[in-house]
Design a protein around this nucleic acid. Sequence first.
DNA 1: TTAGGGTTAG
Length: 646
Amino acid sequence: MHVILPTRHVIRSIIHKTLIQQKQHHHQLKLLLPTHPSNSLHVLSTFIPSNNNLQQSLLQMALCGYDMNFQEYNTLLNECVIRRAFREGQRVHAHMIKTRYLPAVYLRTRLIVFYAKCDSLADAHRVLDEMPEQNVVSWTAMISAYSQRGYAIQALNLFVQMLRSGTEPNEFTFATVLTSCTGSLGFFLGRQIHSLIIRLNYEVHVFVGSSLLDMYAKDGKIHEARDIFECLPERDVVSCTAIIAGYAQLSLDEEALELFRRLQGEGMQSNYVTYTSVLTALSGLAALDHGKQVHNHVLRAELPSYVVLQNSLIDMYSKCGNLTYSRRIFDTMHERTVISWNAMLVGYSKHGMGREVLELFTLMRDENKVKPDRVTILAVLSGCSHGGLENKGMDIFYDMIDEKIAVEPEPEHYGCVVDLLGRAGRVEEALEFIKKMPFEPTAAILGSLLGACRVHSNVDIGEFVGRRLLEIEPGNAGNYVILSNLYASAGKWEDVRSLRDLMLKKAVTKEPGRSWIELDQVLHTFHASDRSHPRREEVAAKVKELSVIFKEAGYLPDLSCVLHDVDEEQKEKMLLGHSEKLALSFGLIATPESVPIRVIKNLRICVDCHNFAKYISKIYGREVCLRDKNRFHRIVGGKCSCGDYW
DNA sequence: TTAGGGTTAG
């Protein structure tokens, strides 16, 4: 049989045409490929990438040894980039070498992008190195490849190399390289890059500006970030989101919310990242009404399918105390990441629902789609701890030690075990466990044991641990408070006094305690010292009134919660000024009887206020849902879900 | 041809 080989020109035009057409006119392809009797057409048809079989067409091309031109290479490389088709792209590259084709800067840059998209950074870098001359685009493509995959040092090194080569960066380069300026070294370089940006007049560019403000915000320089934001001649959704997220990530939740509302009022079109960021702030504030409103926006904007956003919603509802909503979102998700599972597990854990934590963890392992990570195990262990399931927790910890769970045990995991044992009253065992750990105990671990000693009134171990803790962490006021509580409970007043003196000598400052409550989308915040709330006097009077009523029912103010050296009467007065009591009493005055009183405290709740909340629940029949720094306290009929351990 | 913002834990 005589086969007529098609001319180069014919092959070229067919392949080129087909590659372009197959996306838009897929159905027409069949018309292009009739089972024609002609042999030449039969041969031709094998060149045509039917069913996206790019590899086949390229193989045929290579077999026939035809060379290709710029257009063809470009078309093929674009296809390879879109499909992340590594093998095929390699063939295209090999074909260039084999046919001694010398690609221009443009095509070489496409090769860098191709290798980078296929996560083959070494190949990409080799292409850059072998370029006869690089331009700003090729440098930037490679810098971007490194920075997008988290290789910050390599990205910064390359940027410096680029400057040394005499190539001037452009707005793309700056927007990219700034994302690698993290950590102290990165920030040091970032400041210098900032001056270069000013010199080259790129500061007003919206992409560069959002990268720049994000860099400042991530190292805690939020005021500088805000200044950059305010000076931008134009804003878009990314720059707005960057500044809102900056506040939220620094836990400046009220500022984040305020700015979000202002920008929304000014016409900012939020997208799913904006909502995700503002939800982080709302989680921190436990602002359920606002959270529901954002959820509504999300539903109306038809955005609910973004996993990151759904994860944020799960977290928001759980931190607002509404686990049912969290679970509903979790159950309806089409795709879940490890963060989705973790957010749900943490939610159950913080509510002390140990059984639900274990059930969900089992489901996660049975489904076997997503691997548990270190956060998963932290959530499960602390869930067992908060839920009083210490034996289950120990089993899971030993599964990790025996490598039945593929997560490397870290100090935080050991800390959970100490918490687990301590909570169960196994204080000596916890101390022995600490002594056997393969590393020196961290302050958090000792702190957790000290807390257990206070609850179980173990003065000997508590003193030993507490003194060691004060050496490691002399600036943490919480340690002094707990040790002092322990001394006070044992009647060791002399020790209480000397501890207070030590605290004064070391000039320890305590983060001021504050509590808040949400009422019709307004957050009412109370501080022990600040008298700014408009209804403060009324609220203070209510606290006094309640304390009289509660005393008749058996409430005994726990004066050990006051560290100041004042007389008993003064101590009681100070106790009544605690922010939790103010917020709880305000809740009692201002919210309808049918709903739980939801209070949030920025620190750990004190024993006396915990007691006070129990009396509210008992005497007034109101459910109290109190979130402190560590967990939720759901108090019903005088009993708390924490089992008086927190 | 090259570009910026995001979720869990402590």
